[in-house]
Design a protein around this nucleic acid. Structure first.
Length: 194
DNA sequence: GCAATGATTTACT
DNA sequence: GTAAATCATTGCC
């Protein structure tokens, strides 16, 4: 069952980030259908420095996040890695959830082929899972209600199975780097770091 | 037009 | 654990 747009338009990005855990990320790219459970997310808000659109800074890159929730924001980092975000909140309030790790369900062989590796290194990181699912910057700005990339209802997790902690790789954000806005499923093999 | 810069990954000490 | 690689995109000149 696909998630409707109302889900993405909430004004509490951390709540949405937690809700996304256990849901199924599906992609139909290059004629190949792949799907995976979302196991790790991070929240990004306009109010903190970790976000590209911090303080409503509007550029060609962050335009996407100013849209209404329910679109994909794919950002190319370090010139190599595609990072997949889900834009949330209403138009004009840039917030997004970064998908950091997933657990493969369907199309595993295609993922292995795309990644050139297998096992837990397949999707245990934001740059890897996009590669595995076939997501690239061409998908920047597409709607999650279309037939290319979407999210379905998945597993439900108990609150106590969800771990919240500080985010990774944004040390430059100073005190905002301490916000416990990274969420993952306790004891899951596919999270990006221990 | 061009220099600066990472929401990471991978390999190495 | 730490460090270097790496290159498309961004933002400023």
């Amino acid at each position: 069952m696909r998630i409707d747009q109302n889900f993405y338009c909430g004004n509490d990005v951390t709540h949405i980030a937690k809700q996304l855990l256990g849901k199924i990320l599906c992609a139909n790219i290059d004629g190949i259908l792949t799907s995976a459970y979302i196991m790790e997310t991070e929240a990004y808000s306009v109010k903190e420095r970790g976000c590209h659109a911090y303080n409503y800074k509007k550029t060609n890159r962050t335009n996407i996040m100013f849209q209404k929730g329910g679109v994909a924001y794919v950002y190319l980092c370090y010139g190599i890695h595609n990072l997949f975000n889900v834009v949330t909140n209403i138009e004009g309030e840039p917030e997004a959830v970064l998908i950091r790790a997933v657990e493969p369900i369907k199309g595993v062989e295609s993922m292995e082929q795309r990644r050139g590796s297998k096992g837990k290194s397949l999707t245990s990181g934001p740059g890897k899972l996009t590669s595995a699912l076939g997501i690239n910057h061409n998908h920047n700005g597409i709607s999650l209600l279309e037939e290319t990339i979407w999210i379905e209802e998945g597993m439900k997790f108990d609150e106590k199975e969800i771990v919240s902690t500080t985010r990774i790789g944004i040390d430059y954000a100073e005190e905002d780097a301490l916000l416990p806005w990274r969420f993952y499923i306790r004891d899951n093999k596919y999270i990006s770091k221990l």
